[in-house]
Nucleic acid binder design. Sequence first.
DNA 1: ATCCATGCGCAACCATCGGTTGCGTACTGC
DNA 2: GCAGTACGCAACCGATGGTTGCGCATGGAT
Lengths: 112, 112
Amino acid sequence: MSVAVDDDLWSAVGDPTRRRMLDLLLAEGAGTATTLSEQLPVTRQAVSKHLVVLDRVGLVHAAAAGRERRYQVDEAQLARAVAQLADVGATWDARLRRIKRIAEAIERSQEK
Amino acid sequence: MSVAVDDDLWSAVGDPTRRRMLDLLLAEGAGTATTLSEQLPVTRQAVSKHLVVLDRVGLVHAAAAGRERRYQVDEAQLARAVAQLADVGATWDARLRRIKRIAEAIERSQEK
DNA sequence: ATCCATGCGCAACCATCGGTTGCGTACTGC
DNA sequence: GCAGTACGCAACCGATGGTTGCGCATGGAT
């Protein structure tokens, strides 16, 4: 049950700042470049660029509200991203376990 | 049960090429810059640089074997990385579920 | 013992990316 | 109508992922 890994989606989520932005947006429901930058160690412009990236891969979407651009997490897309994280994790996990099993089998066969 | 997220470890795993390298190393047990580059769309030198990065965060380690440098995955460290993926995924998942629950509650209270 | 091939590292170079500062512009509220 | 604020655009900078080109050392065939 391997989800096809979308490199764009993954690398959007790969950046620590963008990850924190998603955290903040999830925690507060919505936010603007300005409100997010107040809670992050980077400038509004940097946040704004990240929002463009997140928007491009569909992880957030913007709604114009007067002079503000209010951003919100796209839950379905974030769920997809989470699925991919889980999938890669599970794949590696399975391989690690298989390696361990083989190693133990070899060990057993040698000590007998 | 939140694992402290190590940005270095995460971003090491964030690069798609490095992820594929880890896949290959896991599948074949070990490999060199040359053997890996043959199975990837990048040059040996690019692979070599990635191996340095992976080595720096402890995800692989090298063993000199004649004129070869044979690399291997550090299973414990990869397990740590997997745990972090799972952790972030779980956090987002929980938040998404909470949002959904609240949304449903609001919907219910309005339609009554 | 030699010579060729191979596996690697180093250096220069380039585009992209994450970040900054500076500036112009447009909406809001008094 | 004017001050303040939220934004976008552009220039710039360092780090990173990628390339090519080179030199060096080791291993195997003659």
